[in-house]
């Protein structure tokens, strides 16, 4: 099912006809280019927009809510047709969104949700990512025992979305006592070295009696695995992650990480690019493919959303990322013994 959706998304992206649109202006307000992935997103959006004959402009808020507000004012002044916003602060952005709408421009909430009933929300299903992490852990990792939760930054709504998905799947097991939560910490700034220290202290406090670690992303998983390695536990304690980082996919091949839930940001970018082009041409939101109603945000505001399904990458389906051209086989398989992983032979 997931794969079918995935293929459909690619087909959609490659076969759509943009001949109608031309000369429209699509703007993006990025919250940051600090992490690797945003450049990938940008390239995908830009490609779709320019293929349709429209113009692409963008700003980088450099992780500052104030700068983003100023950025958006600047974008509005250039009279674009659509503004795609990757919000740094999902509440703080709302006045800027109102200004966008007041200027008669359409807004798209990209990856990070801001709750505005008139905007379109395009994202990978983050609650779904959490669910997938937990489900993969139960199916291929550990079903019971002492679990440690290494969560992301407290201020990021995605950390909470993820955790609600994780909780949803694990709650019955926790309630029945099969799973005992021994550590549960937020990690300042999603930083790997903080996650490493958190994990070291978690292992110390529990005398290494930790059976599984739910880490909310791959960067933190690198810190968790380093802490486990120092105790000789790497490989025997399953660790989750997300983002499809090259280093993490290598750990999946080496067996020190169980799963990296992969959200191909190129597909997300393509989807957003196509939606922006369509909206710029004056097409109604309801005419877009895959639109549903979403209301599980913090305030429960009902909005139109396109939710894409992520792909949990484990040892068994590592070839997915290689085939998609996300990473090379050499990068994934560095240091892997022959015959240990199918995708590496």
């Amino acid at each position: 099912m997931r794969k079918a959706l995935f293929l459909a998304a690619i087909m959609l992206a490659t076969t759509s006809n943009y001949a109608l649109a031309s000369g429209k202006l699509i703007a993006v307000s990025w919250k940051t280019f600090q992490e690797e992935r945003w450049k990938t997103d940008e390239a995908a959006i830009k490609a779709v927009v320019e293929a349709a004959g429209d113009k692409y402009i963008s700003t980088d808020a450099q992780n500052s809510a104030q700068k983003q507000a100023a950025d958006i004012e600047g974008l509005i002044a250039q009279k674009p047709d659509v503004i795609i916003v990757v919000a740094y602060d999902s509440d703080g952005i709302l006045p800027s969104i109102k200004a966008i709408k007041d200027a008669g421009i359409k807004a798209i909430s990209y990856d990070v949700q801001f709750e505005d009933p008139d905007s379109l929300y395009i994202t990978f299903d983050n609650v779904g990512v959490g669910r997938l992490m937990a489900k993969t852990m139960l199916a291929h990792g550990k079903k019971e025992g002492n679990f440690a939760f290494i969560k992301g930054d407290k201020g990021d709504p995605n950390a909470t979305f993820l955790f609600s998905g994780i909780q949803e799947v694990l709650k019955p097991e926790i309630d029945s006592g099969k799973i005992k939560v021994v550590c549960d910490t937020f990690t300042d700034g999603w930083k790997p070295d903080n996650a490493q220290k958190n994990m070291e202290q978690c292992l110390t406090a529990n005398n290494n009696k930790v059976d599984a670690v739910i880490s909310e992303n791959d960067g933190m998983a690198s810190g968790v695995v380093a802490a486990l390695t120092a105790q000789g536990l790497a490989g025997s304690v399953p660790v989750t992650g997300q983002d499809g980082d090259k280093a993490a996919l290598n750990r999946v091949a080496l067996g020190t990480q169980l799963v990296s839930v992969w959200k191909d940001s190129r597909i997300l970018g393509k989807e957003a690019g196509m939606a922006a082009v369509a909206l710029a041409d004056g097409k109604p939101v309801s005419s877009l493919k895959g639109v549903s109603t979403f209301s599980s945000g913090k305030k429960g505001v009902k909005m139109n959303a396109i939710l894409l399904q992520p792909d949990p990458i484990t040892k068994a389906n590592l070839e997915d990322v290689i085939k998609a051209g996300w990473v090379t086989k050499a990068e994934v398989c560095a240091g892997v013994k022959a015959g240990a992983v199918k995708a590496c032979d």
Partner: peptide, 16 residues
Amino acid sequence: ISSARLDAATNALGQS
């Protein structure tokens, strides 16, 4: 020391 300890290097390492 810190990149060897983490067995990885990222631009988040050392921040603040």
